[in-house]
Design a protein around this nucleic acid. Structure first.
Length: 136
DNA sequence: GGCGTGACGGAGC
DNA sequence: AGCTCCGCCACGC
C-alpha cells in the first residue's frame, strides 16, 4: 500500500489512513460526481464552484478531467457544469459540445453562442433570491 | 523525470 | 468583449 503523494490529497492521509493513488483518485471522483449530481435541473454551476463544493477549491481543472473520464451517464448532469463566464467548456464542434447544448436546452436553460447567462441560471441566482427575496 | 497539454479562473489591459 | 499572462495540477509522452 503506497501512500498517495498527490499534493492535494494530503489531507486525506492526514488522519493517518494509508491510501494509494488509485484510491485517492476514486475519492476525488466520488466527491466531484456527488457535487455535480447536486446541481438542480435547469440550473448551472461553474467548474470552480463544483471544485470548491467538492472540497478542492482552486482546482477547477480537476473537474474537467474527472468529467471527461466519467461515462456519459444519463443520470449524471455533467452538462450543468460550465466555465465561470458561462461558456461551454468542451471544445466547439465536438459531439460532446453539441450534446451539452442539447441537454441544457432540453431543460430550459438558455444557450446563446455556446454561452449561458450565469446571472439567470447560476446557483447564485437562487442564493440572491433567498437572501434578498429577489434576484439581483 | 522533464515537458506540453487542457471540459479552468482570475487579474490586468 | 477579447486577449495576454500566470497559477493551478493530473496525465501522458
Amino acid at each position: 500500500m503506497v501512500r498517495s503523494r498527490l499534493p492535494a490529497d494530503m489531507h486525506e492521509t492526514a488522519m493517518g489512513d494509508e491510501i494509494d493513488d488509485d484510491e485517492a483518485r476514486a475519492i476525488r471522483a466520488k466527491r466531484i460526481i456527488e457535487a455535480v449530481a447536486a446541481i438542480p435541473r435547469g440550473r448551472v454551476a461553474s467548474y470552480g464552484a463544483i471544485a470548491a463544493r467538492a472540497g478542492y477549491p482552486g482546482r477547477a481543472r480537476l473537474i474537467g478531467r474527472v468529467l471527461g473520464d466519467a461515462p456519459n451517464r444519463l443520470d449524471l448532469p455533467w452538462h450543468r457544469v460550465l466555465r465561470a463566464d458561462g461558456k461551454i467548456g468542451i471544445p466547439p464542434g465536438t459531439a460532446g459540445y453539441r450534446e451539452q447544448c442539447r441537454r441544457l436546452k432540453a431543460e430550459g436553460v438558455v444557450v446563446k453562442d455556446g454561452r449561458v447567462p450565469m446571472s439567470a441560471f447560476g446557483l447564485d441566482h437562487d442564493l440572491d433570491r433567498a437572501i434578498w427575496g429577489f434576484p439581483i
